[in-house]
Each structure stands twice: as structure tokens, then as C-alpha cells.
Amino acid sequence: MKQLVILSGKGGTGKTSVTAAFAHLASQGPLADRILLADADVDAANLELVLQPRRLDTQPFRGGQVAVINEDTCVHCGDCESVCRFDAIIETDGRWTIDPIACDGCAACVYQCPTDSIAMQEQTVGECARSDSRYGPLHHAHLSPGQENSGKLVTQVRQRARQQALDEQRQVVIVDGPPGIGCPVIAAVSGADLALLVTEPTVSGIHDLRRALQTVQHFGVPALVCINKADVYPAGAREIEADCAAQGIPTVGRIPFDLTVASAMVAGEAVTLYRPDAPASLALSALWARVLPFLLEAPA
């Protein structure tokens, strides 16, 4: 079983559209019924908007804890505020309350309180779901707006996806990753067999690609690059290819700027299904044909 994670650094470069196209293309070939999908962008879980999944089960996701003050026993001494480094304890007219959004869950106040009036409370901050989709099983999750611990939720999604893939002897897991280079990205990339970085030839895309590549390499995962909207700024595309060549990273595809991609999104379809002969679809088919051998031959 091999895991491919789609990443980018910069957001909005087309990770999810690429993932959806790969899911569609894989389901048409010899890998039909042998793939499994995971959406690891739990802040902005968009893959399901294209895959139209039918939920089989949903589990609450319990994130960290937050401190809560018991008003009945609080003596309003303010000791809790003095130890809080997160500005989460707020005094209004001699009464102290905890802002659950600011609370980091460190419990310093719990141990500081002289009257044991503060307790930690576990919070349900999202959900983790398993579904059937048109192209194979899908593991996905939603983090409630403003919550932390998205890395833990990503880890949970990936573990559940991996387990089902092993149980059902599915050959390929395609993981739609989050933007950035932080905790959720590290959770999405660690242990993957191959990373495909979808970038765009813009000054921002190039800058963020470099950081994303460093992150992927830091965790020892082999990387490929594809350039989306490659024709918008050809000089940028050439810079990316030169950069990658210098680092020995294959540039495996160039997808042209094509408004069909947005139309397919509105239709809730993978662009390769929506209009197979659109320029972006043709490029995505060629891209998948190049990526797949790298994935299947990636060292275990």
C-alpha cells in the first residue's frame, strides 16, 4: 500500500482539484476499487464537495481541554490571571472568567488556584467521518471554526484511512493535504511514500514551494512538483523548473490556466469527468500517468 500526499505551501494552488481528478482517473484504470481517499485539510475540507460522499459513520473529535472557573467557590483573588501567559483570564468588575478561545489548555491556573475552583474540561471540537464516495472510500473530518489541534485530527484521519486500506488491501491512498508548512502539514506528510507539490508560477507560489519542499525533505518524503496555471507567468514556471532541477526534484506536469476547472467545481465534478477534453483535463491525465509509476515504485 502506498500513500500519496498532495501539498503546496501556498493555499489555493489547486490541490483539491488535482486530488479529485486523480481520484477519478484512478477509478477508471487498473486501480479501480483499489484506491482510498483522505482529506487532510480539516480546516477547509473541500474534497467532499466534488466526491459527493455518502457517510457511513461519524465520530466526534475531542481536542484539547480548556479551563473553567467555578463561580460558586471562586474567591476572586486573581492568582489565576497572574500565571496565564495566554491572556485567557479576564477580569470584569472583580469577577474572573476564562476565554475558551484564548485558553491554551495548559492548566497552570488549575494548579495555582488556592480554592480548587478551576477545572479542565474536554471539548468536542470537530468530527471525523468515514464515507463511501463515487471513486472509493473517503476519510474526512471537520474541525469546528477556530479550534486547535488540527494536527491531531489529521493524524486521526490518516490512521483510519491507512487501517482501512490495509484491511481491504487497497493499493493506493491519495491524501489531499493542507496549505502551509506547520503542524497539520507535518501530520499529513510524515510517513507518506510520495508527496506531489502543486504550485503556481507566481512570486508567492515560488516562495512557498521552497518552504514546502524543505518541510517534505525534512521528513524524508520524496517529492514531485507540478505547476498549475503554468502559462500565466511563464518566467515563473521556468524559475520553478530550474529550481527543482537543481535539487533533483522532477517537475512532472504543467497544467494550463483553464476556467473549466472552476466550472467543474460548481458542477461538483472532477474536471477530468466534467470535460475530459478540456486543456486542464488533458494535462491532469498526463500528470497522473507520470505520477503513478513514481508512487508504485517508491521505496516502502
Binding site: 493555499g11 480546516d43 477547509a44 477556530g146 479550534q147 486547535e148 488540527s150 496549505p179 502551509g180 506547520g182
Partner: peptide, 14 residues
Amino acid sequence: APPGASCPVVETMR
């Protein structure tokens, strides 16, 4: 702000 809707976005908006 950063993209997404988790803690870094909240901290930026606060």
C-alpha cells in the same frame, strides 16, 4: 491572516 480556520487564524483576528 493565514488561510484556514483554526487557531492561527483566531489569534490573528483576536
